[in-house]
Simulated assay, not measured.
Amino acid sequence: MLRLKIFIICIIISWLLSNIGLHLFNSEYAINFLWILLSFLSWWILYYGVFKLQIVVQKDEIHQYLVSKKTNGTQTKKKINDTTVSKIITQLYTIMDQEELYKNPLLSRLDLATRLGTNERYLSQIINQELNKNIVQFVNEYRIEAAKNLLHNPIFNKYSVEAIGMEVGFKSKSAFYNTFKTYLGMSPGAFRKLQKTS
């Protein structure tokens, strides 16, 4: 939406500049230059729009495939053997594994707390005490694990890394790349290439 607004503003500015150039310089060169600039800007916006649309379509295809197969193979189940783990943490693992809440890019601490029947502060505290991480780290671990499984699976080789990132719950390409690199020390593309060679 922001890019659309910028595009519209650029069109208006180009139109104003072409009128000013026509009256001030009385030259067709200024007008032609402005129209060429506008053409490049239009091409860039259209290209970017098509690219983004392809990513969304690919994300939907991945999602439909996973739903149709009903495979839980995209996420390895967490084993909870520790008897000191609280009921809240056990429930949290259960809903994350079964309902795949991490795939919601808008998932918040409040959403998780509400789903578990507790408050945000207590949920944050218990995750921090028992798992030594915060909620964002906890959710991102699920997302990264799901992304690793999709990137490793040859069925998904035809899909872009960005589409896979969206499918597992990341809001943007940069968030996916940064988080993936933080956890694994390499980009998702490098991970995919490494999996293909091994």
Rank of each mutant, 00 (worst) to 15 (best):
E145F: 01
T114S: 13
N81K: 11
F33K: 02
L112P: 01
K193G: 13
G73V: 02
S198A: 09
K77W: 08
I126N: 06
R115C: 01
L106G: 00
Y48N: 08
T94A: 14
P154Y: 00
L106N: 03
Q54N: 06
A163M: 04
L106I: 00
K59R: 11
Y29W: 09
L37T: 11
L194V: 04
M166F: 13
M96G: 05
Y29H: 08
Q54D: 02
L46W: 03
L37N: 09
E61S: 10
T90C: 09
Y48D: 11
F25R: 04
S124H: 01
E162R: 10
D111R: 05
A190E: 15
F176G: 07
Y93C: 06
I13W: 02
Y183F: 15
K193M: 12
Y65Q: 08
K171V: 04
K87Q: 09
L22F: 10
A190D: 14
L46I: 11
K133V: 11
N32D: 05
L24C: 08
N104K: 00
I164C: 07
I12G: 04
I20K: 07
I6G: 07
L16W: 02
T114M: 11
Y47W: 03
A30E: 07
A147Y: 02
K69A: 12
N140A: 03
T182L: 12
E162P: 05
R109I: 05
F170M: 00
K52M: 04
S39Y: 09
K181N: 11
G49C: 06
W43D: 09
T197Y: 14
L112Y: 01
Y122A: 10
T83Y: 13
V136F: 06
I95K: 02
K69W: 08
C10G: 13
S187Y: 02
I8Q: 03
N140Y: 04
L34R: 01
H63A: 13
A175T: 11
R121S: 14
S160G: 01
K52D: 02
Q98W: 08
Q137M: 10
L37Y: 11
N178H: 12
S14I: 03
L101T: 05
K196L: 07
L116G: 01
K173Y: 13
L37D: 07
N132F: 07
I6T: 07
Q98I: 13
Y29D: 10
N128I: 03
S18A: 07
N104D: 02
L24V: 09
T74P: 06
M166W: 08
I88S: 08
K173V: 10
T83K: 15
I6F: 08
L151I: 06
Y93D: 06
E100K: 14
L110M: 11
Y159V: 02
L194W: 07
N149Q: 01
L17H: 04
P154C: 00
Q91I: 09
P154W: 00
M96S: 05
Q54T: 04
F156D: 00
N119K: 12
I62V: 09
K78V: 14
W43A: 15
I88L: 14
G73K: 06
K133L: 14
T94I: 14
T76D: 01
L112S: 01
W15R: 10
T83G: 12
F51T: 09
S187A: 05
A146S: 05
L4Q: 02
S39L: 13
I164L: 11
